[in-house]
Design a protein around this nucleic acid. Structure first.
Lengths: 231, 231
DNA sequence: TTGTTTATGTATCCTCAGATACCGACTTAG
DNA sequence: CTAAGTCGGTATCTGAGGATACATAAACAA
């Protein structure tokens, strides 16, 4: 029954490390609902009662939120294999805090919140694996959010850029960094305007702290950078 | 063996909704380590290998982080009953990202990460409850962080204040709001300076959008407020 | 090739909010 | 009672960074 979705489901972070056969058994036990949507269809609407975690099996969708004024603001893009609503599933929140809308033809699989920890009479062995995966996914999301908060809390332009570069440096272990984001994405991530960011980066280049050409950045003065990150 | 800690443990969010007798059984099965610390002792140090979730049974502690410069920045205060490191437990992170230091004489209980989902041969029934609680706690933390990100992402003073007031309004369902934070705490939460916030609030008072006296705030023009929250 | 689009750097202008200092109203300790 | 501390509002000054517009340069399509 769920064979045709097996390929996609197995790639999902939620089902990582679980054998294909087991996934199939799990799906048959969890009895998820699978729905198709056309471009611009609402997959879930903010305020709706929450009951399932969603998995995008096919297509792409946007997560957006309306502010009090009524303007819609896109918060994330969901691609094939992404999951949504996983944070809400186990919190006390009863309604969707955001709207998910199909950006193109979409197939979405819904895992009912109750079934996940639920009273599976056979207490199937892989329930534990699934729950562990849930814990991992949610924890990682929380870690990510935590890091984002750290960045957003930094007040100065320099501080943000320096902290970001130092983190990339630590990750790559080399003063020659290749940024994973272009200027637009980076300025967006740091929550600043692109020209302002460019301006500051150029200043830092003039001061001999860094050098760069597009996404290739070289740290010329690490101590200086560390100094700046405290601003 | 763990009787003397029972009182404190049962108040913890992790053990919420679990019977005293069961908690005792759980503790005997989980075999947590309990340690005491004096003022200023390091409970965990950033970079140390991570292995347990901590629960503050007695006393208070600070969570801090060092930036590249070497300055220590306090991130949170932990009080009796608070837990720490719960987000890390199930992520792939292998080390403590921050330092926890005793602010006064402290007693801390450590639940080994492995034991929580672990291979309890009897697969004790309350394992599931504990894991569910973990899921709830971590999800709620993620939701909280998500909200924090939303606030930090708002760029203008007005936007922050308006959004905050509207949220309080929604929560209380009344245009007469009693702020749960004083000015210092509020400006801190919104990540702005107190005088700037006061200045803007006064402007909004002049414009007839709100009225306030200390923590008592009255919304005079909701539509106006909603309008501002989009800035 | 040439035209078109997209990514990046740069200059100008000007506003918003941070820093700092100070005042007055209350509270608490002695 | 005075003295010291806390909390909130206000004034002034200043600068960091946003908005906008434009100039290259690269990428890509026709």
């Amino acid at each position: 029954m769920f064979e045709k979705y097996l390929e996609e489901v197995s790639k999902t972070s939620l089902f990582q490390g679980i054998e294909r056969v087991d996934i199939l058994a799990m799906l048959n036990c969890l009895k998820p609902r699978v729905c198709s949507y056309n471009r611009n269809d609402y997959i879930v609407t903010g305020g709706d009662p929450y009951e399932s975690v969603g998995i995008v099996l096919k297509g792409a969708a946007t997560v957006s939120k309306e502010n009090a004024e009524g303007n819609r603001i896109v918060m994330t893009l969901l691609k094939q294999g992404d999951i949504f609503g996983e944070i809400i599933a186990f919190s006390s929140q009863m309604n969707w805090p955001a709207t998910v809308q199909a950006q193109e033809t979409c197939v979405v699989l819904f895992l009912p919140r109750g079934k996940i920890v639920g009273e599976c009479d056979r207490m199937c062995s892989w329930h534990r694996t699934l729950i562990q995966n849930f814990l991992r996914v949610i924890s990682e999301r929380a870690m990510m959010l935590n890091k984002k908060v750290e960045y957003l809390t930094i007040k100065s332009m320099r501080g943000k850029i320096s902290t970001y570069l130092l983190e990339q440096y630590r990750r790559e272990g080399d003063v020659n960094i290749t940024l994973p984001l272009n200027r637009n994405e980076l300025s967006d991530f740091l929550n600043v305007s692109r020209p302002s960011m460019s301006r500051e980066m150029s200043k830092m280049k003039d001061e001999g702290i860094i050098d760069f050409h597009f996404t290739a950045v070289k740290i010329r003065n690490i101590e200086g950078l560390k100094h700046m990150s405290a601003l």
